Structure formats: C-alpha cells, structure tokens
Amino acid sequence: MAHYDLKTQDLKAFAPKLRAGDTVTLTGTLYTARDAAHKRIVAAMDEGQALPFDLDGAAVYYAGPTPEKPGQVIGSVGPTTSGRMDPYSPRLLDAGLTCMIGKGVRSQAVADAMARNGAVYMVAIGGAGAVKAESVKALDVIAYEDLGCESVKRLTVEGFTAIVAMDSVGGNLYRDGAAQYRTE
C-alpha cells in the first residue's frame, strides 16, 4: 500500500496504477452527484443531450452537501452509499468516468466496468463530512438545481483524502480486507 498526492486531471492516466488499500490526497475538480442526478445524466445520454460535465477522466463524489454557514464554502459533505449508483455507474464508466468516491460495497457489474476502463473506486470516511468540507475551496452548482443538495456541483478541492477500495485489476478491500479476519 502506498500514498499518492494526485491532481484530479491526472487520474485518467494514474487510476490503472492505483491498488486497493492505497491512500490518495486529491487536488483539483470533483463533481458531486447522487442517484437522482445519475438517473438524469443517463437519460441525457440516451437522448443525445449535453451532459453537465465531461465524463472523460472525471471524478465523481457521491455526496449531497449541506448548506454552508456564513464564512464557509460548503456545509458538511460526507459520502453517501455508493450502491445506489450501481445501476448507472457501468454506463458512466464506459463513457469515460475514471474515479468514483463514496462509501460501501459495489456490484460485480461496477467492478467489471472498472476493469474494462481502468477506473478506480475510492471511499471517504462516513461521518466525517465536516472534515471533508475543509478541503473544498470553491463550489459551483452546474446542473439540476431543482434537486437541492443533490444537484450536480463542481467542487475545487485541495487535500481531499480517500482510500482506494476497489481497483481496476480486481483488488477489493470489502472482500479481501474482511477475508483476513475470518476464522472459519
């Protein structure tokens, strides 16, 4: 296991080299999107409409930030359960999405799409949304404003930390990490 300081624009080239258990500190652009936004993005793809952001090389953080308080850029911005995005993720990965950040296990279909595309799934610690907010330096709502906290936002981050939970060569902390503690 290694630690990497990466710029998000370098993730497309670097993601295939990351391995489950590596820690990463990201600087650059993350997009927030949850299941309602994913549904709309896939519908836009189906209809040939413009997408809210370029999927090629993009990193999506599964989060719905709370409103900021005076003097803050963003409120608490903790991860949400990633499995809710599983029906949409393979399609987005096949369209160029490189990095997903959330919490919890992912389906085999997502793992297969990650392998096909050299993508990576990272986890952020649930319950630490206020700490994550400290790494957000700018926020712009870029699509689906009617979804409120679940709108698509472009975040500019510095020092955003995450752990690689699943890599593009089959490494999976949820499977392999638990296996080392089984006694049967």
Rank of each mutant, 00 (worst) to 15 (best):
F53P: 08
Y174P: 03
L18R: 01
D56Y: 03
T32R: 00
C99Y: 01
A119D: 12
A44F: 06
P79M: 12
T8N: 00
T81Q: 13
V131D: 15
I163A: 09
G118E: 11
P65L: 07
A178N: 11
V42R: 02
D35T: 07
V157H: 02
G129P: 00
A115L: 01
S107R: 11
T27C: 04
A59E: 00
I125H: 08
G96T: 15
P70G: 06
D176E: 10
V73G: 07
T25F: 00
M85G: 09
G129I: 02
I101Q: 01
I101R: 01
K103M: 10
A124N: 01
L155P: 01
I142V: 12
V123S: 13
G177Y: 02
A58H: 07
F14K: 14
G48M: 05
S151R: 12
V157G: 04
A109N: 13
F14S: 13
A59Q: 00
R116T: 02
L155M: 07
L139K: 13
D112Y: 00
M100E: 12
G170F: 05
V73K: 05
L55Y: 15
G177Q: 04
P87H: 06
A59F: 04
E158P: 10
G127M: 04
V152L: 05
D46W: 08
G159W: 00
I74N: 07
R154D: 14
A95F: 13
M122H: 03
Q108H: 08
A13F: 05
D56P: 02
T66G: 04
S151F: 05
H38G: 03
A33F: 13
I74T: 09
M122T: 02
D94L: 10
F53R: 07
A95S: 10
F53N: 06
V152I: 14
V77N: 12
T161I: 11
L11D: 01
R106I: 13
V77H: 00
T8K: 00
T80H: 12
V164W: 13
L51Y: 03
V123I: 06
S151L: 07
A113T: 03
G78K: 03
S82N: 05
G71V: 11
A95N: 15
A115M: 12
M100R: 05
S82Q: 10
S82H: 11
V169W: 09
T29Q: 05
D146F: 04
M85C: 08
I41F: 11
A162H: 12
A138S: 09
V24N: 04
P79Y: 06
V141P: 00
T66M: 10
V60E: 02
V123D: 11
D46P: 03
L11C: 15
L30K: 00
G148K: 07
D167T: 06
K153M: 11
Q9E: 12
S168Y: 05
I101D: 01
I41K: 02
A44S: 14
